[in-house]
């Protein structure tokens, strides 16, 4: 799992900067932030979108693609914020890399959101065909 997240993040933002933080990023921040935002929170948001907003509360009002996109963007914002927050929590050396990382995380959160959507949407009552 660690290596998967490391691969994903470093694929688009390269090696951690400053290099001294490499172990911190690779063994703590990447897996923790990835696990929590990309897997946990994103899955939760997808579940909320498909099974709360579009299932439990009896309304079909939120089934449009732009609602889906809205939740995706909120999720991306959370992913961005959490990445920055977690870096600060771990007292990582301030560097623009933190923000690149946060951007990458937001980007992947969108990708994972889409993947989870494809996985979960079918059983949703009102959004089984959202976004498509």
């Amino acid at each position: 799992m660690k290596n998967i997240f490391r691969f994903l993040y470093e694929l688009i933002i390269g090696r951690p900067e400053p290099p001294m933080e490499t172990p911190l990023y690779r063994s703590e921040i990447f897996p923790d932030v990835g696990g929590i935002t990309l897997l946990l929170i994103t899955a939760l948001m997808v579940l909320i979108y498909y099974y709360v907003l579009n299932h439990l509360i009896q309304t079909a009002r939120f089934s449009h693609w732009y609602h889906w996109l809205g939740v995706l963007l909120v999720n991306a914002a959370i992913a961005f914020g959490y990445a920055v927050y977690y870096c600060r929590l771990n007292e990582v050396t301030p560097d623009s890399y933190v923000y690149w990382f946060a951007f990458a995380n937001a980007f992947y959160s969108a990708v994972f959101f889409l993947l989870f959507s494809l996985l979960f949407k079918w059983r949703s009552n009102n959004a089984a065909r959202t976004p498509f």
């Binding site: 009896q58 309304t59 079909a60 009002r61 089934s63 009552n125 009102n126 089984a128």
Partner: peptide, 13 residues
């Protein structure tokens, strides 16, 4: 209208 859609969605499934 909304209630209609919700039930139609359900029936469709």
């Amino acid at each position: 209208h909304d209630g209609f859609v919700v039930r139609l969605n359900k029936e469709e499934k």
